[in-house]
Design a binder for these strands. Structure first.
Lengths: 205, 205
DNA sequence: CATAATTATGAGCAAATATTCAGGTCTTGC
DNA sequence: GCAAGACCTGAATATTTGCTCATAATTATG
């Protein structure tokens, strides 16, 4: 229940193909189970059952329950970082609206497979210091990049660019999480259009 | 663990002052404990300990763990509803920016005491049908009111007012939750200014 | 003061759940 | 085709945690 990592190392490095396959099955099953039942009710036994393997096998590749969730989170963060970097390379220079559009689209895309899991990840995941730092760093980096962008871009008129950058990063992240995983999901096209419009008009004053 | 209410009634109605005092102590302690540890790790024993009472006393006033969280949530919702009504009475008519400002200010105010608890409430609270309906109704009502406002107000230029209304309600709620409870909380004044600016410029096109 | 009613206590129960380990089954390399 | 290591199994164990209940302390009542 506590988030201490009693063992840092996974118990085994998979050496055969079937082992790696089992590992993948566990992660896939965990993604479904956590997304459907939440973290607390997403028991390791349920995960093993859904993966079609025994509970013992699960504990050969993950030291404890937290480690499974942590790995899922790290994967998502890595995806996010990759997308952010790609956008930063591709987007410049150009109208601010196009930059926002690329960011928003990237964010929406990376939330389409497992929206419910992602809410669980960021809302219920036990916050090990390591993972927490990673999240924080990613958001800080993004905010810093965005602030520089706002400071330099000729179309931008907001003055308090620090608050603005944080506001934008937070808004994009949270609104997408919430609305994509909502009981009555919005059309992602509309969401993209309106969100981009909101951000653009905001910074252009 | 499950969210069924085995007993609807609290076990006892407090009849002496010290009993009511104990009830309050429990709720206050629960607010702290849930805010600090989350719902699952916020154990009833920890709550009792923090309240300086025995675990048995806790179960004299609340039928189960869920009921404590539910009461905290209902209190917050009632606050929110009251603020929303007040704003709706006071705000009209006037420039849209002023209306938004009143709403944002009200929302920020009602999140200042226990920001971390409030995130737990809306993110991890077990969804008893009763409470869930209340939340949904409040948000739907607000979105409907907002949509009507957008449709009629002469300054407003957005066309997809339904998506816009949902976007705005979601944004205000989530961003405030997140940023007020952040490790480095933003200055609430800046937050208000920028958030209002964002919404206003958005709807005015 | 005496009796009843109310409130408080906390060791311990029961159920749920994470995790282990002794002993099987499958793969690989020779 | 046969060891040796890799992998898998799942009943059993350890731990956590919501919650009870017999008993004690406090307060109201007359």
């Amino acid at each position: 229940m506590s988030s201490d990592q009693r063992r840092i190392q996974p118990r085994k490095q998979p050496r055969q193909v079937r082992a790696e396959l089992t590992r993948q099955r566990i992660l896939t099953a965990a993604a479904h189970v956590f997304g459907e039942h939440g973290y607390a009710a997403g028991t390791t036994n349920r995960i093993a059952e859904r993966a079609g393997i025994s509970i013992g096998s699960l504990y050969q590749y993950f030291p404890n329950k937290d480690a499974i969730l942590a790995e899922l989170l790290v994967r998502h963060l890595d995806d996010g970082a990759a997308i952010a970097e790609r956008v930063q390379r591709e987007a410049l220079p150009g109208p601010i609206e196009e930059i926002f559009r690329l960011f928003v689209r990237g964010a929406i895309e990376s939330h389409l497979d497992e929206p419910r899991l992602l809410r669980v990840l960021l809302e219920q995941a036990p916050k090990s210091n390591d993972v927490l730092e990673r999240v924080e760093r990613l958001k800080t980096d993004l905010a810093a990049y965005l602030r520089a962008l706002l400071d330099e871009h000729p179309e931008v008129r907001v003055t308090d660019t620090e608050t603005a950058a944080r506001l934008i990063v937070t808004t994009v992240e949270l609104v997408i999480h919430q609305l994509v995983a909502d009981h009555e999901p919005v059309d992602t096209g509309c969401l993209e259009t309106e969100l981009v419009a909101m951000l653009t008009r905001y910074v252009k004053g």
